[in-house]
Design a protein around this nucleic acid. Structure first.
Length: 271
DNA sequence: AAAAGCCCCTGGATGC
DNA sequence: TGCATCCAGGGGCTTT
């Protein structure tokens, strides 16, 4: 589920409502990617200052420290005045004086990490390897092209890796490459400057439009106020294997790259 | 340094 | 109906 648009939509649906909330208690379900353990007690009494996003991480600024949330493959947040009894996949509740923030994550690839201060080694390690934010001016054509030049892997996998540019997951990588007319298997280093600029624009365009549509709800994503996303209805190639390309009518192809499905139009993306 | 695999986990869809 | 197999929006870690 959650690529940059879904995480950003979650943030937008949550930030204003939770800002200023005082944490009263924490409920833990099964362990997520890393067990939060007794550290949960350190959260009690803290106040939430705001919510930022870095790549696919949500960063909750506290009056003392930082709480990192990652939705993994199947996670979603819900923030409401009250919550039903915790279900089998509700693994983290933050009970505050403004409502309860609940993380539901069936596959448990998500994570909650508490960074007590600026010096949290774990947080620094996780955030330190992240590439540039695609929707900011820091995502500039020259640097992006130079980064691609340095990589010999297929461009789809370079986009997914997240160390050059963050936030592009499996849906939006295929979509951006379609918009740019680039074959996903093309080695990143072989992309010309003009095509790199086209790809940069495509990445920004598809991510921004997906945020505007509330993200993509493939099975169960919803924002923190329960809204589904609708961008999946506009997908040009993702999950459309065998169906006609919306531009030229050729059959969309599906291949596997690094154990993930990739979709492209063999006619619109010749190289 | 970069690339390629492996693995974490659960549930839904498909096929026999 | 039951059971096995494959696949799914991510990414950290280990091995080449």
């Amino acid at each position: 589920m959650p690529e940059l648009p879904e995480v950003e939509v979650t943030r937008l649906s949550l930030a204003d409502r939770i800002a200023g909330a005082r944490i009263e208690s924490v409920r833990l379900g099964k362990p997520l990617r890393w067990p939060l353990g007794v550290v949960a007690e350190a959260l009690v009494g803290r106040t939430v200052r705001g919510v930022r996003r870095r790549g696919k991480y949500l960063l909750m600024d506290l009056d003392d420290g930082l709480l990192l949330l990652h939705l993994g493959m199947s996670g979603s947040l819900n923030f409401a005045a009250s919550q039903p009894p915790a279900g089998a996949h509700d693994h983290f509740d933050l009970l505050t004086d403004r409502g309860i923030l609940r993380l539901n994550d069936p596959r448990r690839f998500g994570a909650v990490v508490y960074a007590p201060g600026e010096d949290s080694a774990q947080a620094a390690k996780l955030l330190g390897r992240l590439g540039v934010e695609p929707l900011t001016d820091a995502f500039d054509p020259a640097a992006f092209h130079a980064g691609l030049k340095r990589r010999h892997a297929p461009v789809k996998q370079v986009l997914l890796a997240g160390d050059l540019v963050v936030g592009v997951g499996n849906i939006y990588a295929s979509e951006a490459l379609f918009l740019a007319g680039i074959r996903p298997t093309l080695r990143a280093s072989r992309i010309s400057r003009p095509r790199a600029e086209k790809l940069r624009s495509a990445v920004r365009d598809v991510l921004a439009r997906a945020v505007a549509k509330g993200g993509s709800t493939l099975r169960d994503f919803s924002s923190a106020d329960g809204q589904a996303g609708y961008f999946q209805l506009e997908a040009m190639v993702y999950d459309r294997a065998g169906l006609p390309c919306r531009v030229c009518g050729a059959a969309v192809k599906s291949i596997r790259q690094g154990q993930r499905a990739t979709y492209f139009c063999p006619n619109c993306q010749k190289s």
